[in-house]
Simulated scan of single mutants.
Amino acid sequence: MNKLENLKIIIFDLDDTLIVEVAAVEAAFLATCELAHKKYGIDTENLYHTVKSHGRQLWNAFVDIEYCNNIGIGYWEGLWGNFIGDHHNLKFIRDRIPTYRYQVWYNALAEFQINDSIFVQKLVDLFGNELRQRLVLFPETESTLKQLSQNYSLALITNGISDLQHEKLEKTHLLAYFQHITISGEEGFGKPDPRIFKLTLDKLGISAENAVMVGDNLSRDIKGAQKIGIRGIWINRSRKTLSQDICIPDAQISSLIELLKLF
């Protein structure tokens, strides 16, 4: 991708683009399960996979899956989010989330013949604490944003519930870099829905040809943006094989620092 002479704004995804997410979630699960290993001798990896299985099963059984898919949230948010907001689905989840969290860990431990309600609640609380300690930026995130913000306006479009995404942004001190932040949980729809990209452009008064989207997910971030004419830059840290049946990004990078060469 050559330097865009008409580029005015760079839009970023948040999770696994600017902030470590998947690795942080996995590490938090393993750290929490390790406590059960120390107390009861349960294999850490086995419990980890058992918890994930029960998390998905119970989540799918009580939430409006279509709504959750629309805003891009999954069972792991249910294990640590507060689900603040006025949408009836958020209220529904918020009212039931303490029971959900307890039941996930209770059911997982029951498979190892453990019945300890006090310990279950300890694991519930520990997972959220462990994950919050792991809300960190990729090493190059802040320096890249600082340099890019000297010449371009920056915006953010992220899928997720409002309280968690704001917590991540505040803890990692990213808020000051963005002219506008769009969170799917506040709008009722998220990436790859073209509406969330258009909403951001409209809020900024920018046309699609003056914007570029940077994200780690080909389908949600890149294809979604390209649908309304925004160029898409795929950050492919793990150097996955490009799946051209999804979409072809306008550029591909393995580190955010490479954006400084593109622009």
Rank of each mutant, 00 (worst) to 15 (best):
E167Y: 14
N89D: 12
S243Y: 14
S255R: 07
Y48V: 04
I233V: 06
A31D: 15
L204I: 09
A225C: 02
K91M: 10
C68M: 03
G190S: 03
L204N: 05
Q179T: 15
D116T: 07
E140I: 03
D64W: 13
D216N: 06
V214M: 03
H180F: 14
D16I: 04
W105Q: 03
I246Y: 07
A31S: 13
L259E: 06
I114N: 06
G160D: 04
G160A: 02
K91R: 14
L18P: 04
W234T: 00
I206N: 05
D116E: 05
A36F: 09
Q252V: 08
D202E: 09
P194D: 02
I181Q: 02
A61I: 10
L201W: 01
F12V: 03
I183G: 02
F197R: 01
A208N: 03
G41F: 10
P98F: 05
H54M: 10
K191S: 04
Q57V: 15
L14N: 00
E142Y: 14
K223Y: 05
G190E: 03
T44N: 08
I183R: 02
F12M: 01
A61W: 11
F112G: 08
P194Q: 01
L175T: 14
S149T: 09
P192L: 01
Q121C: 12
S207P: 09
I196G: 01
L4Q: 12
F12K: 01
E140G: 03
F112M: 11
L201V: 01
F92Y: 13
A36D: 07
L164S: 11
Y106P: 06
H49W: 09
L58H: 08
E21C: 14
R101Q: 06
L109W: 10
F112C: 09
A225M: 03
M1K: 07
V63A: 05
L14P: 02
E142F: 14
G232L: 04
V104W: 06
L259A: 05
L126E: 15
N69L: 05
L218P: 02
V20K: 04
I257R: 01
E142K: 13
L175V: 15
K3I: 15
V136P: 11
L145C: 10
D202H: 05
L259W: 06
Y152S: 01
A23K: 13
Y177N: 12
A176K: 15
T182F: 06
E77T: 13
S219N: 10
Y100R: 05
V22F: 13
E186N: 06
W59I: 09
V63R: 08
I157G: 01
I157C: 03
W105Y: 08
